[in-house]
Design a protein around this nucleic acid. Structure first.
Lengths: 137, 137
DNA sequence: CTGTGTGCAAACACTTTGCAGGTGT
DNA sequence: ACACCTGCAAAGTGTTTGCACACAG
C-alpha cells in the first residue's frame, strides 16, 4: 500500500483510480502509455479519468513524460525525485523488438555544449535498439 | 529548383506535392510537422497526400523524424546524409517560447555506455529550453 | 459541507487505409 | 502502357472539454 502513502505525501486525494494507476507504475519498471494503463486497471475506470489522473501526477511531479518515436505519450515514475526537485536527466531506452521503454536511471545524459543564446531547461535522450532480454532471445 | 534534382537523385517521380514539400523543407531551417507543411503548400494538395509524401521521403532517407514532446511528429531534411548512409546523430533543440525545433547539425550526441546486452540502433537527443532568438527578444 | 474527482457524451486532432481515377516516365 | 501518385471518403487511435453527479476530507 505504498501508493496510498505516496498520494498522501503529494497531498492528493485517495481515489480508486489514482491508487490503481500509481500501484501499476510502482510495480512496473517500464514506461507506460495511457492505453497500457487502461488495459491493466479495473475496466470500470473511465478512459478520461485515467488521462486526468496522468495529468495530475505530471503536474504534481510524481511522474515524468518519456519521449517516444511515435503514437502515444509514455509516462514513468520519478523514482529519485523528491517533492520539489526534479532531476530525471537519465537516458531512456526503447527496444524495437519488444516495444518496451525502460528508464536507465543510472545513466545520466552527458552535458552538451549549445550555441550561445540557447538555454537548457530540459533534456531527453532516447536510445532505440535491442534490449538485454531480446538480445538473448 | 534544387528540389527537382533531389527527387531525381532519389529516384522519385517528380510531382507537384513532392516538389512543394521538399522545397519547403529546403528553405526552412526548422523541423516541420505535417500541419506546418499543410498550412504552407498549395491548398489543393490533399492532407493525405502530404502524409504519404512524408512517409515516402522517410523511407527513401531524404528526411528524418525529429522527436517532439507531444502532439505531432516533426520531420527535417537529412542534410548530411548521402543516399545510403545515415548519420544524423545530431542534437535537436526545441524552444519552449516559439515552439520551433532546430537541428543542431554541428553538435553530435555523445556516446553513452549502456548495460550489457543492450544494442544501440538509433539515438535521439532533444533539448528543450529557450533558443537564441527568444533569449534576446 | 465543499471542493475536487469521476463518468458519460461529444468533439477535436493526428494518422492510416481502400478505392477509383489521373499522371510521370 | 504501366506502375505509381493523387484525391476523396471513411475509419482508427490518441486526447481534450463540458456538464451533472458522487465522494474524500
Amino acid at each position: 500500500m505504498e501508493a496510498k502513502q505516496l498520494l498522501k505525501d503529494f497531498k492528493l486525494k485517495n481515489t480508486n483510480c489514482r491508487e490503481e494507476v500509481l500501484e501499476l507504475m510502482l510495480s512496473n519498471e517500464h514506461a507506460l502509455s495511457h492505453s497500457d494503463i487502461e488495459r491493466q486497471v479495473d475496466p470500470a475506470i473511465d478512459r478520461v479519468t485515467v488521462y486526468r489522473t496522468l495529468r495530475t501526477f505530471l503536474d504534481k511531479g510524481l511522474i515524468h513524460k518519456v519521449l517516444d518515436d511515435g503514437g502515444a505519450t509514455k509516462y514513468a515514475l520519478c523514482h529519485d525525485c523528491s517533492l520539489g526537485e526534479h532531476h530525471h536527466e537519465h537516458v531512456h531506452f526503447k527496444c524495437n523488438q519488444c516495444g518496451q521503454t525502460t528508464c536507465l536511471e543510472d545513466i545520466k545524459i552527458p552535458a552538451v555544449p549549445l550555441p550561445k543564446g540557447f538555454k537548457t531547461q530540459e533534456k531527453n535522450l532516447l536510445i532505440q535498439g535491442t534490449c538485454g532480454g531480446c538480445t538473448n532471445a
